[in-house]
Computed example of a mutant assay.
Amino acid sequence: MHIHLIIPGLLWPAASLVGPAAGLALPALAHLLGKGRMTHVEFEPYHTQLLRLFGDAQASTALADLRRRGESCLPPADDAHYLCADPVNLSFAREHLLLGEFPDDDIEPAEAHGLVVALNDTFGDLGHFELASPTRWYLRLNEPTSARLYPLHDVVGRPIKHFLPEGDDGRLWQRILNELQIVLHNHPLNQAREASGKRPINSLWPWGAGTPPQPRPCSFAAVQAEGPLALGLGVTAGLPTRTPDLASALNANTLVVVERLLLPARQLDLDRWRQSLIELERDWFAPLASALRQGKLRTLTLTAPGDRFTLQLHAGARDHWHFWRKPLELDALLKSLAPPPHLPDAAAP
């Protein structure tokens, strides 16, 4: 059996900190990194890598439609056009207006529900807003859009002026964004959030428009994922889907996508990232290393999309016999991948 494990966020953002995994005891991951064969692949956005695994890396694919198909709490999608309309916070940093996303536990379900009700009361001519989770919202459009809309994860922490809607409907969607921000700013729920010291939900970020995805053949027999985009790809391909479970993953060639490091890495939440790594060592790395040694797993591919490149690790059931290959600690790996320090011109070689 083969497992392809994708862990976005495993590579801590290179420019922010050296030694983020220092002092962490991750012996099973070190064993896999040392015994397996590692390669570096040219940078490619995480969502594009997922699409490519299912034979579809088209930039025009509707990511909102795919992600919504992976939402078990929503009714099946119809022929309508959907957008992701995720709640965000806009804040000024010097002269720039920066976009920030919310951790899953930062928005109460009642707050999200109240804001969605208000948006549907005001923007019925635009479409209908749906709530999948406090941080994942959708807009069922009354009319399709041809605007170029940038994915949320491309914009987080960056000035939004470089990522405003473009194309034929670009000006229209810029005006819609302004109107959405006014409604959200004036809502009592946001005023209560600010009074309690929380960041207001003062904008939405629309993204994910495109052509509906088509079923394509792939090499997996099942898909397990924590995020709805990967689950939606599995649903579109007609594969069994579920949340990650190692025991069942060992029964078939399975794609497993574990995203618990993604938001902590993107939001530079080091404590949460380190704690999640410890959990991954216990729940996945140690059992997978054991399954390889015992022959219960034939091959393991580990993919770690990063902010500069993607790390790929291939490990086989016989690799543990390679005594000349020593364990490689994650901290040492991250330090070796970090960019060199900037040298003043006078000190440059």
Rank of each mutant, 00 (worst) to 15 (best):
A132I: 02
A346V: 07
L177Q: 15
A230D: 06
E44K: 13
F43Y: 12
R272E: 06
E108H: 11
R308W: 00
G19C: 07
A22H: 13
G9I: 07
L11Y: 06
H185C: 02
L292S: 12
E179N: 15
P344T: 02
A77P: 11
E71P: 07
H314C: 09
L126C: 04
H320N: 09
G157T: 06
L139T: 09
R193C: 11
D78N: 15
P264E: 00
L261M: 00
P341Y: 01
V256A: 10
I107P: 00
C218V: 06
E166L: 12
R68G: 13
P200I: 03
V223H: 10
C73F: 08
W324T: 08
P287K: 10
S60C: 11
V257D: 02
T303D: 10
V41L: 15
T299I: 03
L164E: 14
W137T: 01
A304V: 00
I3F: 10
Y82L: 14
A304G: 11
G19A: 04
G127W: 02
A221C: 09
A332T: 04
F309L: 10
V18Q: 13
L204S: 01
L53M: 15
P264S: 05
G55T: 12
H113F: 05
L277G: 01
R308Y: 00
P217I: 08
P134I: 06
L204P: 02
G34V: 09
R308L: 07
A225V: 05
V156S: 10
G234S: 09
L26K: 07
P144W: 06
A249C: 04
L334A: 01
E108V: 03
S336Q: 11
V41W: 09
D154L: 12
Q174D: 05
T254C: 08
H4F: 08
H314S: 12
A315Q: 13
D86T: 03
A291T: 03
S60G: 12
T241Y: 05
Q224P: 05
L277H: 07
L239E: 04
L292D: 12
N190P: 11
L33E: 02
R242P: 00
R274F: 05
R260Y: 00
A317D: 09
L5N: 09
L139G: 14
G208C: 10
Q58W: 08
R193L: 12
A59W: 10
T145L: 04
P76H: 14
T39H: 13
S146W: 10
A93F: 02
L204Y: 00
P151H: 12
A317P: 00
N253R: 11
D283C: 04
L10W: 02
A230N: 07
A289D: 14
A249M: 01
S196G: 13
L334W: 07
T303K: 10
L83V: 11
D307M: 09
N186T: 07
N142T: 13
E166R: 15
E226N: 04
R293K: 15
G197W: 09
D86K: 06
H322K: 13
P228I: 02
A62K: 13
F123T: 00
T243S: 14
A93R: 13
P144F: 07
